[in-house]
Design a protein around this nucleic acid. Structure first.
Lengths: 114, 114
DNA sequence: GGTATATACCTCTGACTCCTAGGTAACACA
DNA sequence: TGTGTTACCTAGGAGTCAGAGGTATATACC
């Protein structure tokens, strides 16, 4: 997205990070690459957004970090979902569905139905 | 939404305002009521968000304002979409669809498909 | 006539999120 | 030795949103 890469991002970054970690522990760089790949680069994850978000999630007790070695033999911090993180993910996912549905409703309603 | 009313709002307020105005000119108060009603109060539009947004859209030349009288016989500023606003609406709507689709993709992808 | 309610507008300020720009370091390969 | 990739990080500024507060008028009711 050259046009408006950040236009609607608010809040969804946290949600997608939590979702990605729900599959398996991962490090920041890997999370970013995965989200981009999964969305065919529709969503680009800036590092200047990702790392602060990761630290915030850790402060909130939603994820925990642990140093390890990647498959490329490099040091990396692996993040893992906590039980609180799983609950948060479920709640955020549910809210996202309601939110996106509501927005779609506005965007698809015709004058006549008003 | 008691939980997280603002969690994902970024950018979508402008989009929904433009969409609402694409049907007919309307005043701020009416726009807010309509969006809330249309979404069964999933989306609540705070006046502290709406009026600054309206002024910003006007500054950007996407909408124009004109004083008039409402059906309740009160003074109100009626906003109307400009040609630039219509183009912006089309672009934002398209981008929202791509964005929401991408987020859904992340949220619904299972570990196996990775 | 007085009061309450709904309609309709507005701004200030703080909290928050995001990105740009910059930096560090180690490994792989030519 | 140099280049590319992997991997981490922060500071600062820009932008968005909501809470709290304020103004004013029409209508309905007492």
């Amino acid at each position: 997205m050259a046009d408006a890469p950040t236009e609607f991002l608010k809040g969804t970054l946290d949600l997608m990070v939590l979702k990605t970690l729900s599959w398996a522990p991962a490090h920041g760089y890997g999370i970013a690459r995965w989200i981009e790949q999964c969305t065919d680069d529709v969503l680009e994850v800036a590092e200047g957004s990702l790392y602060p978000a990761l630290h915030k999630l850790e402060d909130e007790g939603l994820i925990t970090a642990e140093w390890g070695i990647t498959e490329h033999n490099r040091r990396a911090k692996f993040y893992r979902l906590t039980p609180a993180g799983k609950r948060k993910l479920a709640a955020s996912h549910a809210y996202w569905s309601r939110f996106a549905g509501a927005v779609s409703k506005v965007l698809e309603t015709s004058p006549a139905s008003a």
